[in-house]
Amino acid sequence: MSSDPRRHEALIDALGAELTPVRRLLPPWLRTLGWLLAVVAIAAGLLMRYGDQPMLRRWAGAPDLAWAAAGAVFTAVCAAWCAFVLGVPGRSRAWAWLPVPGLLLWIGASGLGCLRTWLAPDTDIATLHQSVDCLVFIISFSVPLSILMVWLLRRACPLRPALTAVMVGLASAAASASLLEICHNFDAAATDLLTHALAVAIVVGVNVAMGGRLLSRH
């Protein structure tokens, strides 16, 4: 089709005729805060139910678990922020690196925990059945958190829907793993670490498959 300025003029005219005032998208940090409030509310509920003593005792006995938990929290915050930033056109893809340090801390500290368990094998290690409970916990908390984030992104325009969906999945899985810390009674054994990794992979994968489609309608 040859260049036809009248075609563009006509469309601009038509779009102008349809123009209505719009409410601007809230800044990414504010929407991140909104999502984190939901996570904090769930954490408060779990703390009321289980108390903070078991968690603090475990962290005192195995500081690498506390580091892993800090890494998971940091990953959740950064991945959520990144998801909301990627929903605004014109923002750099480099934001996708933001959750990486937290992720490295989370994986690294959990891995160290595994090594320690191999060196001192008489610590309390989760059985396969208990690991499945962890898997169910992470996935069942990730589902509402992912849905909430996709809902908060409904007015956004993620031009990279798959990358945004990865961030939504990562944020939800990391937040769920952080919540699990409150009522988790086991040391970071290889079975447990594998279960967590599997849960995170499932949550991210499902988000890419389903959330990506939801987010790509623009």
Partner: peptide, 23 residues
Amino acid sequence: VDSIDDVVQETLLTVHRVRHTYD
């Protein structure tokens, strides 16, 4: 070259749809 005008039209329509995302 012959598809550039189509991209212009699609972009204008997208801009209209997501104009609230501009800060």
